[in-house]
Nucleic acid binder design. Structure first.
Lengths: 148, 148
DNA sequence: GTTTGATAGTTGACTGTGCAACTATACACC
DNA sequence: GGTGTATAGTTGCACAGTCAACTATCAAAC
């Protein structure tokens, strides 16, 4: 669009802040969730995605897309959660190649009990540091980054 | 600060956009840098950090902090870069426990040759999708998130 | 109905990263 | 000067995630 930038372009400061803020906040949330709930952040994310999905289930590929994870990554993640009884696999009737990852009641309970820790963290490390207006513009900007 | 939030708080949309935007952009940059330059994004980040540091060197712990990486992670990362000749370890004279990770000339060259690919990606996937004003507010907001 | 190409998901081999435990050095205090 | 505590960095071990190769199924073309 504009000409090529150099390593000293001042706009890169925003990019670096973006990277660092993400890394720090996620690292802290990860540690807190692990310490208080013995749960990995990715596992939590799966439960959230399934909990808001239609019929509390998602095709493996859609889950992978939501989590920005490779398909094999999704396979193994769901493997682990199945072993814990939080998720179950259901073969898709209309497309026999496919699998639903479906949230069990135990999974829903686990999500409910882990949520307070996680949400408190998100609030403390992220939301409370931004004004309501800021949060709105942030959402708008990042949706622009995500577009197409 | 404000009362505890629930999983349905509307402010969480900003948080989710933040997570997804980060994951998508970083995944794309990672793939492009790997494909075009055979280099991992983390490796690139090390070279950048060292290149802008005083005397082009950084103590292991400071490097770990900059990269938001564990100390063992930094050790192994520097191990790999030393093996490639892009970085070298220098024992710190004033504190014999310490090590400097120091950018070699080869490392500087490698950075210079990889930069165009990376910067083009950052521009395309991130910078060009935001206005100059947006980038400024973004930087301000994220520095607030990083504060203290 | 068979062939051809695309898609869904899993598996094997490998890599990167974290935590906990460890070694070595520094610093403070008696 | 010796003792105790903190800090810098590395290593063992475990585990999560990626890419490439594979199997099974679907859909289209003929």
């Amino acid at each position: 669009m504009t000409g090529t930038i150099t390593r000293h372009d001042t706009r890169l400061a925003s990019w670096r802040a973006f990277l660092q803020a993400h890394a720090r906040v996620v690292r802290d949330l990860e540690r807190e969730l692990q310490a208080d709930q013995g749960m990995a952040l990715t596992d939590y994310d799966v439960l959230v995605q399934l909990s808001v999905a239609e019929a509390r289930r998602l095709r493996m590929s859609d889950l992978a897309d939501q989590l920005v994870l490779s398909r094999s990554g999704a396979t193994r993640l769901v493997d682990r959660l199945c072993a814990e009884g939080l998720v179950e696999r259901v073969t898709c009737e209309s497309d026999r190649r496919g699998q639903w990852a479906s949230l069990t009641d135990a999974g829903m309970d686990r999500l409910r009990s882990a949520a307070p820790t996680h949400l408190r963290g998100v609030q403390e490390h992220f939301l409370d540091r931004l004004s309501t207006d800021d949060l709105a513009s942030l959402e708008r900007m990042l949706k622009g980054v995500l577009a197409d």
